[in-house]
């Protein structure tokens, strides 16, 4: 799914959360969204998912995206940093609800759901209410539901600061790579540069609602000089910090 964002701006009162963002994201990539706290990463993910709408336009494969466009919305899966679920729903009921809403509750999906439950170590929790889960377990449940849908665009807000255990994180990385190899796009925000550097194909750095840096990781690695002790991304952040926007 090719994503085109044209002059996207979003204001909360007097604050410009996003300011004239324009970019194109090619399909089959894992894009890491970086930036300081309050830079606008979450707002960009929310705009891409249709949760909030700003001025400007977002197109998926050339088709203009609006919140009411259900065909497109069924191709997008968005998981906020704090997954919201009905507390009395069990893990299975939650996944069932997500599949139902994505019109993916076909019996053929059962093996895939079981695979995800197994991968996230959720099997013993299938009949546990969401309110009884830890934050990491709740995040894994929400993630399992959305991965089962197999959406063309996966938007994840801070998945690596979600309380998931190492197994869950490893499984998510594997699933993200598999999705990208199928031509799907994964966009996630993070503050952990090591993960961004090993998992991503592309980097998007946002600062005060504007795109500060957008390039592929290989491009960045090609231009950066190797300094001892500092990763390529750490060097980039230090460089950006020294140059005012």
């Amino acid at each position: 799914m090719r994503i085109s964002v044209e002059s996207l701006s979003k204001r909360y009162g007097r604050v410009h959360a996003l300011d004239d963002v324009t970019l194109t994201i090619e399909p089959g990539q894992i894009l890491s969204l970086l930036g300081v706290n309050g830079a606008g990463k979450t707002t960009l993910l929310r705009c891409l998912s249709g949760v909030v709408s700003g001025s400007g336009s977002i197109s998926y494969d050339g088709e203009k995206f609006t919140r009411g466009n259900m065909n497109l919305r069924r191709k997008i899966a968005f998981l906020p940093d704090f997954p919201i679920a009905f507390p009395h729903y069990t893990v299975l009921r939650h996944i069932g609800m997500v599949l139902r809403l994505y019109e993916a509750d076909d019996p053929a999906i059962e093996p895939r759901v079981l695979e995800l439950l197994r991968g996230f170590d959720l099997l013993p929790l299938v009949d546990t209410p969401m309110s009884k889960l830890s934050r990491g377990q709740a995040y894994k449940t929400a993630l399992a539901g959305l991965l089962a849908v197999d959406a063309e665009l996966l938007l994840l807000d801070e998945p690596f600061a979600s309380g998931m255990d190492p197994n869950g994180i490893t499984f998510l990385k594997r699933e993200a790579r598999a999705a990208a190899s199928r031509g799907h796009t994964v966009i996630y925000s993070t503050q952990i540069l090591d993960i961004a550097e090993t998992l991503s194909d592309c980097l998007l750095i946002i600062e005060r609602g504007r795109v500060r840096y957008y390039a592929s990781l290989s491009e960045l690695q090609g231009t950066a000089s190797r300094q001892e002790g500092n990763s390529v991304l750490e060097q980039l952040f230090e460089k950006l910090r020294s140059i005012p926007q």
Partner: peptide, 8 residues
Amino acid sequence: KLSSPALE
């Protein structure tokens, strides 16, 4: 419908 009883 917010559930999929058969699948669940």
